[in-house]
């Protein structure tokens, strides 16, 4: 899966939780889930669970700890997919 494909999948996952439409439309690797997309922190758990379901991977606590941005999420997903 290319990075662009990953970003597209991630966009679909985060869409129900975002509270800043403009930041969502301009989403890049640098986008922060909380500061930019204004996802509330309890919903960040839903993002993590949705990512696990979508990619059939397990995101351990150490990885979840870092999952605050698109870039971090992509790194974590890529890493876990490579381990499969």
């Amino acid at each position: 899966m290319t990075k662009e494909e990953l970003i597209t999948s991630l966009k679909t996952i985060v869409k129900p939780y975002i509270q800043d439409e403009e930041a969502f439309n301009n989403l890049t690797e640098e986008t922060d889930f909380i500061n930019d997309l204004k996802i509330n922190s309890a919903n960040l758990v839903d993002v993590v669970l949705d990512v696990e379901d979508k990619f059939d991977i397990e995101i351990d606590n150490d990885s979840m700890e870092k999952m605050l941005s698109v870039k971090a999420a992509i790194d974590i997903i890529t890493n876990k997919l490579n381990q499969k």
Binding site: N61, E65, K66
Partner: peptide
Amino acid sequence: HSKRFFAPQ
């Protein structure tokens, strides 16, 4: 600590 992270547990 000026460091953000997500580790509710």
